[in-house]
Amino acid sequence: MTQAEGYEVERQTIKGTPVKITSYQIGNIYYCHVANEDPGAVFVRCEGDSREQVLEAAIAKATERL
């Protein structure tokens, strides 16, 4: 058993689209999801070894997809 740590949500606008970026750590894995602000559906998800790494990768993917 473990728990989510460092649960953080931040809002940004990428290519004119407001998005919600959620990141947290479970065990040794960092997760980052990017969802459209409304309705909030996740369209990018990344996992990795550090928060910086997953945030960077997720924002890059979101920028590509939007």
């Binding site: 058993m1 473990t2 728990q3 989510a4 740590e5 649960y7 959620t22 479970i26």
Partner: peptide
């Protein structure tokens, strides 16, 4: 789910 995670409650895979 968000509240459960944000509160740091136990999770499992």
């Amino acid at each position: 789910r968000a509240k459960w995670l944000a509160e740091g409650r136990e999770v499992t895979t």
